[in-house]
Amino acid sequence: MNSLSVLRPEHMAPIRNLTLRAKMIVEGTIAGLHKSPFHGFSSEFLEYRPYLTGEPARKIDWRKYAKSDKSFVRLYEDETNLAAHILLDKSASMGFGSASMSKFDYARTLAASFAWILIRQKDAVGLTAFDEEISWYMSPKSTNLQLKNIISYLETSTAQNQTRCGDTINSAAAMIKKRGLCIVISDFFDEPEAIATGLRHLRFKRQDILAIAVADPMELEFGGKSAFRFKDLETGREITIDSQTASEYFNKGFADHHSALSNTCRELNIDFEVVTTAEPFHKSLLKIIDKRRRLN
């Protein structure tokens, strides 16, 4: 058996200790990496130096170039001291799970893993949990105690209440003061326009945003043969509908919703990634990390 195969959700689900889960995932996934996936976001400017031929053009400070008509590269004082915010959706819709793990369980495991990685490379990490409003906020710190507190909170939290994803991201953005990294983990079941407003606010606060949409496999490919009587986990409303109509509308609605989100993120230069609760954690993490590396 591949050593990474133990990181599949069905194998991780029995491990209730989130610390151990995060440690296994991170050490199994990140151990072979030579360079931190999260760097280059420090805001402390040191000096300019002339641009050398052969360097990536993106390092050129174009403002300086516009003023002086000469190419310079900005140097920063410290590239590893990153302030990261993890925004975790804990609304009732995240409690849905047709597989071994619910979306919330998967999301908090991912959140713990990210926190672990960031703390390990001495970056500051904070956690904001939200449903219809912000229910928990921890400002970024780079101490082990911070990691312990984050994991402790994640272990005890449950998915409940309705989603107001866009508004709460907007509110969280207002609380962020410093430039940094923002990891939003949610199913984003809110109006795309509201979500776009929140994300736009985060970008305004000079946040490098990583939006991770957690989806259940059934949501990605909804189907069935019998009629359904659905109960909304958030509102408690019930409807009866045949399987074919349900498949038609849900699959199309879900695809359109994610398409709208994807377009918004592309416009705002935000990394948008969809992960399913059936995916092994290491694959999800590597997918996200690889994408960020390519972008950087």
Partner: peptide
């Protein structure tokens, strides 16, 4: 008729 709790009913409008 299969009873099921679902994450959202936002994709099932009245038309559905």
């Amino acid at each position: 008729i299969k009873r099921m709790d679902i994450s959202t009913l936002r994709f099932f409008p009245t038309a559905a």
